[in-house]
């Protein structure tokens, strides 16, 4: 089980903050494609970064069951 976290505008658009994926392993890019198809939202990840287990990751980072993937839209704290 891979846990995917969504925040801010992405969370509102998807209508949920957390998604569970049953695959044993996926690349960050594969998760993006999967969610874009599922939510029919082609620009979903534009400008967005991925974090795996709370560290920034790349599109080709491999995700395994038990990992937590968060998609980080452009930040606006402060």
């Amino acid at each position: 089980m891979i846990k995917v976290l969504l925040f801010a505008g992405m969370q509102e658009r998807a209508g949920k903050s957390e998604i569970q994926l049953d695959e044993p392993h996926l690349l960050v890019s594969e998760i993006k494609r999967k969610l874009e198809n599922e939510y029919d939202f082609p620009q979903m990840f534009t400008g967005c970064l991925a974090a795996v287990n709370e560290e920034f990751a790349e599109d080709d980072t491999e995700i395994r069951s038990g990992d937590v993937v968060a998609f980080i839209p452009p930040v606006s704290g402060g």
Binding site: A8, M10, Q43, M44, G47, L49, I72, P73, S76
Partner: peptide
């Protein structure tokens, strides 16, 4: 990873041009 959403009398918007044109 902190985000703010501006709320106005007539609407609201997440700051950071999310899903628009700002990217790293």
């Amino acid at each position: 990873p902190i985000w703010k959403k501006e709320h106005w009398e007539d609407g609201s918007k997440w700051v950071g041009d999310q899903l628009e044109n700002t990217s790293y």
